[in-house]
């Protein structure tokens, strides 16, 4: 299932169009991110399907930022699913990556993964592997929205109460690139305390995901307390869409909140 991706990457590397390709490989019994630089060394490349489709996805965009910061003049290829492509588009608008220096190689997600992710677009615009799966709406959001406000609040508080404040949701997030993080600001969060103050800790992050979260779901997967963060951020994205007709990675241009922020400063 990786043949087309390997062929494409081999072409890109041999033609010298890219310095390296950031994808996934099987090594030491694990699937992990890997920068492929040799066209003859693509044997170990995989698409991140360990036992189920997409169960070994990694924030490749985020790692690409790390590499690009040190090598801004080089062009790199990167493996993208639908969510990763939304991530790239959003990172371009925030000037975290230069679109002229990134060549995405797309794969479409299988239906099983699209269902599990409740993904609105489980495929990138162009892909060399896989078939276009059907889009799914957010059943998890509909379910919790069905509760009355009091029950909804109790339900979220029960989820937040399990938080061990590992900051994993932030650290895995390809859209979290700020030099200074509000989750470490003493004015907003009691930084030295455990467990974190709820719901403020989670709501600060949720507000910061507004106009930014591209719904990749890595935060949900990384959470040791199984807090359904993805559902929370999906709801935030719905609100922004309803109010501003903007959905990060789907709509063009910068987030309306970004524009409001700049206007407020002036």
């Amino acid at each position: 299932m990786t043949q087309n991706v390997k062929k494409k990457v081999k072409e890109l590397l041999e033609s010298g169009k890219i310095k390296g390709f950031l994808g996934l490989c099987q090594k030491n019994g694990h699937i992990g991110p890997h920068l492929f630089c040799d066209p003859d060394d693509l044997e170990s490349m995989v698409l991140g399907d360990e036992e189920r489709p997409g169960d070994s996805r990694y924030p490749l965009n985020k790692l690409l930022i790390h590499i690009a910061r040190s090598y801004p003049d080089e062009t790199f290829g990167v493996l993208v699913r639908g969510c990763d492509e939304r991530g790239l588009k959003t990172l371009y608008t925030w000037n975290q990556l230069n679109p002229d220096k990134v060549i995405p190689v797309g794969v479409a997600c299988p239906q099983e993964l699209a269902d599990a992710c409740e993904c609105l677009r489980p495929y990138p615009e162009e892909f060399v592997e896989g078939e276009r799966a059907e889009e799914r709406s957010s059943a998890s959001v509909t379910k919790i929205s069905g509760l009355d406000v009091k029950d909804r609040f109790t339900s979220w508080m029960k989820e937040f109460a399990r938080c061990i404040k590992c900051y994993g949701c932030r650290d895995i997030c390809p859209m979290c690139f700020c030099n200074e993080c509000s989750l470490e600001a003493e004015e907003l969060i009691h930084t030295g305390e455990l467990p974190p103050e709820i719901p403020i800790f989670h709501l600060v992050r949720a507000v910061h995901m507004a106009g930014r979260c591209i719904d990749c779901g890595l935060c949900n997967e990384v959470c040791p307390a199984d807090i359904p963060l993805r559902t929370l951020y999906k709801k935030v994205a719905d609100i922004i869409d309803e109010e501003f007709n903007y959905r990060p990675g789907y709509s063009e241009g910068k987030s309306p909140l970004n524009i409001l922020g700049s206007a407020a400063e002036e």
Partner: peptide, 25 residues
């Protein structure tokens, strides 16, 4: 993550049997 000999980041392994893609702070 090691860039030019310098460790720059930590990425939890999703296939690690003990942590399954998660880590503590």
């Amino acid at each position: 993550e090691v860039l030019d000999g310098r460790i720059i980041g930590t990425i939890p392994s999703k296939s690690g049997p003990a942590n399954q893609g998660k880590l503590c702070i």
